[in-house]
Amino acid sequence: MKLVYVFDAYCGWSYGFTPTLAEVTRRHPGVPVEVVSGGLFTGARRVPIRQFGYVGGANAKIADVTGVPFGKGYESLIEDGSFVMDSEAAARGMAALRALAPDRAVDAAEALQRAFYVDGLSLSDPETYRVLAARLDLDPDALVAAFEAPAARTAAAADFRRSRELGVEGFPTLLAVDGDRARVLAVGHADADTIDRHLR
């Protein structure tokens, strides 16, 4: 069995799920975790953040329910309103991080989201991956090259396809996958104790 975590780096509830996922992986160190990027903000949904009028209220609820912090850098992006969230670029970033640190995908996903939700860094900007490389002790040139490589675009498309094949309809979704069988453990929000009960 393995866990499959389907998230979107630009999804606030995925960011809020970070502490739960960290606790689940701490409790089950022998269980592999596959991290898959979803395509929340692609196509017609790739618009300035000001067009999502619910963001401020949603973030307040996420912080209240999960305890995750939203940083000043991120809040400045919300106030300005012109920033465009591009899930395809974020998925390329996740693919690049997975390529360089395949055993640290959960940590990489957390670092990716903190870069946006705390520091207000664009996940479309190659320079962001230099910052992430320093935080994760990776080669910055290699990470930027992986982010910009055609293989990252292919991997992002494969992630979106895998998310659809798993039947994921909301982010984040955590599944237990055993062979051809997939069982949903959590969608949106859950604590580690609840996930443990589902695993049992």
Score class of each variant (00 low, 15 high):
T128I: 02
A101R: 00
A146E: 07
T194G: 13
A108V: 00
S37M: 03
R50L: 08
E127V: 11
D137F: 01
S37D: 07
F70L: 15
G12V: 00
P172M: 15
E88F: 12
A96S: 11
R104L: 04
P32C: 00
G57S: 08
R135V: 15
I49C: 12
A109D: 04
V68H: 12
D8Y: 05
F147P: 05
R45H: 12
D141E: 03
T128C: 15
D191M: 12
L136I: 08
Q51W: 10
G188Q: 03
L3Q: 05
P32H: 07
R181L: 11
L174E: 05
K2P: 08
Q51P: 14
V55R: 05
L136P: 09
P19F: 08
T173G: 09
G179A: 04
Y74I: 04
H198Q: 15
E169L: 12
A44G: 13
G43R: 13
S163H: 08
H198M: 13
R153I: 01
P102L: 09
R181A: 14
G81E: 12
T20A: 03
F7K: 05
R98L: 12
F83D: 13
G93N: 04
A22P: 02
T25W: 07
P126G: 10
A149R: 06
A156E: 13
A91W: 08
G93K: 06
M94H: 06
F41A: 12
D103M: 09
L77A: 01
A146N: 11
S37G: 13
R26Y: 05
Q113R: 08
G38A: 09
A99M: 08
Y74F: 15
A99G: 06
S87W: 03
R92N: 13
A44L: 09
L132V: 09
A155G: 05
G71P: 04
Y54L: 12
F52D: 13
R104W: 01
R92K: 10
V68W: 11
T194K: 06
R104G: 07
R153G: 13
P172A: 06
G71H: 10
E165A: 04
R197S: 13
G71L: 14
P150L: 13
R45G: 04
Y74G: 00
